[in-house]
Design a protein around this nucleic acid. Sequence first.
DNA 1: AAAGCGTGGCA
DNA 2: TTGCCAAGCTT
Length: 361
Amino acid sequence: MKGTDNLASSINIPKFQEDLISWFEKEQRVLPWRENQDPYRVWVSEIMLQQTKVDTVIPYYLRFMEKFPTLEALAYAEEQDVLKAWEGLGYYSRARNLQTAVREVVEVYDAKVPDNPSEIGSLKGIGPYTQGAILSIAYNKPEPAVDGNVMRVLSRILLIREDIAKPKTRKLFEQAVRELISESNPSYFNQGMMELGALICTPRKPSCLLCPVQEHCVAFEKGVQEELPVKVKKIKKTTHSYFALILEDNAGNILIEKRPDEGLLAQLWQFPMIDKKKVDQQHLQTFIENKFETKIESMEVKEPVKHIFSHLVWQLDVIYVKLKQSIKVEENTTLVTKEGISTFPLPVSHQKIHKQIPDTE
DNA sequence: AAAGCGTGGCA
DNA sequence: TTGCCAAGCTT
């Protein structure tokens, strides 16, 4: 045991806990996942909230809970229905991992969410943060739940200048939380830290004059709160250009294809895309006729669509193609009516393409 | 350790 | 417009 009680040695810990928790009791937002401490409801909210704003999550959470009200309802649901409910929320592996994990809880833990670190932490999609969040919020266990908010808040209060982009740094903040956390109310302590980060101790222009723990904050005392946390820059994102094809056969059906099981937008459906590096617009008609073994009646250029991801960009030239004949349906592709497309989970860029399909005459 | 994985809001 | 940011996890 080394470095016991050195990170937070400048803090009056009981006073800090009291200031934080009483502020949270008074100022916390009313949110659907705060109605009770049902571990399943807490769990779903924590997964949805990963890298995602509260305002974005709320409508998804309400719909999701209506559709999958219990852990078992989610476990027995069709995966495509789960992805459809997640459509537009992003990071789709969260949805697949969540369902994998609840199925394991049904089979291995008799449908009860584990209440200890090793078992809950071994579940798919539950990492160090989510593990601590569920244990503290649903089970009131004094475990650290260190997310971006907590690292920002504590980097200021304790004047920690470690680079929060480095994986190793999270452990340092977990140690700090272990020193600071309230044993009597770890749930409100952790939620209070995150709520403080969301409402007061914001990334830019923090509202220090309203802060319930201002008197404990070293960065405020020194006037350097806006310099923290330290975070290194990330690289520029590369652009990939494609033709996105709305292929309509002679019967009015549209071809869509399922993306691979892993990787970007895994298992979502999309309109066929052709890398522009492989063919220019002059040869596009012949290319399509060869690739899909069909004949083209007419082609029309629609509005281009740009799709910005966290690490890359898609530039999509949308081409509406009417065929003289039918299309060959292969593995992982299907023909659907214009209305039927909306039942498949589509990435945001392809929802926009879907809207560009002309109405039936 | 570093890279891959979505999306929307905001300065 | 561009880059940054948001209740991170997996490989």
